[in-house]
Amino acid sequence: MRITDSMLYTNANSSIGAARTAVSTATEQTSSGMRVVQPGDDPAATASILTDTAAGKYADAIVKSTTAAQSELAIADGALGTVTSSLATASQLAVQFANDSNNATDRANAAPNVQALIQQIIAALNTKSGDRYLFGGSQDQSSPFDAAGNYAGDSQVRTIEVAPGVQQAASVRADVGIKGVGGGVDVIATLNALQTALANNDTTTIQNSIDALKAATNQVSLLRTQAGANENALAAAESVAQATSNSETKQVSNLQDADIVATATKLQMAQTALQAAISASTQSFKFTLLNPNG
């Protein structure tokens, strides 16, 4: 083939340009640490990166909401523990003052203790997490129980999504567990009855309240069990979501991030190729009759 000057320069431009592009690409990948920046870099990987990232963020959101819900259920469980403890104390008082060894004065003196337990229970049931009350159902912006023990909440159990379309209960029903809606025992009314009976020296009612308090305790225990079960379910969901999040993050990293060792090697190769292209071009320019001695 006849070699002309323009061919020499065009070839030099072309080969050096291609080598420079390769160096630029390798440098960009090495410095950014990313293999896929534009969709055209790897269309299939881009689609997976987007769906995996979305799935990872969805899992992160579940982790966040289930963690918060578990925290709330733990607070609710603590409050219910206070209720259980108070009921145990009330039961002891009922057993103690049902006994004939106590007189009317003794019982009247014990009545304020029960009243204090009632207030303790109401305070526990008005527990808040952040700015909202945990036992009011959806009515969580104001105290679910007033001083007299009346319930202002509703019957709604809050749920949160733990998987696409799957809702998990994240609260317990105080209307059922405390107020006895649906055939149970009204815990506060039972304590009020005990307090009144103690004040009035009504031993029959005091005697009856022992069983009622036992039923109330069982009822609150059941509520705690439900809270615990919900907490466990949320913990399991959190664990799954966290695993999903980790897996998606890893997958995105595999698809998007550059292999540093590989890119560094590629950069070195590209630099060597550029050096070779420059050197070869320089040599080719030397062979001219204008410079017969080279």
Binding site: P39, D41, D42, P43, T46, T51, A54
Partner: peptide, 12 residues
């Protein structure tokens, strides 16, 4: 993801 991938394929 699909539309982005399609755009990427055409670019590629």
């Amino acid at each position: 993801a699909t539309l982005t991938s399609q755009f990427g394929s055409e670019t590629q």
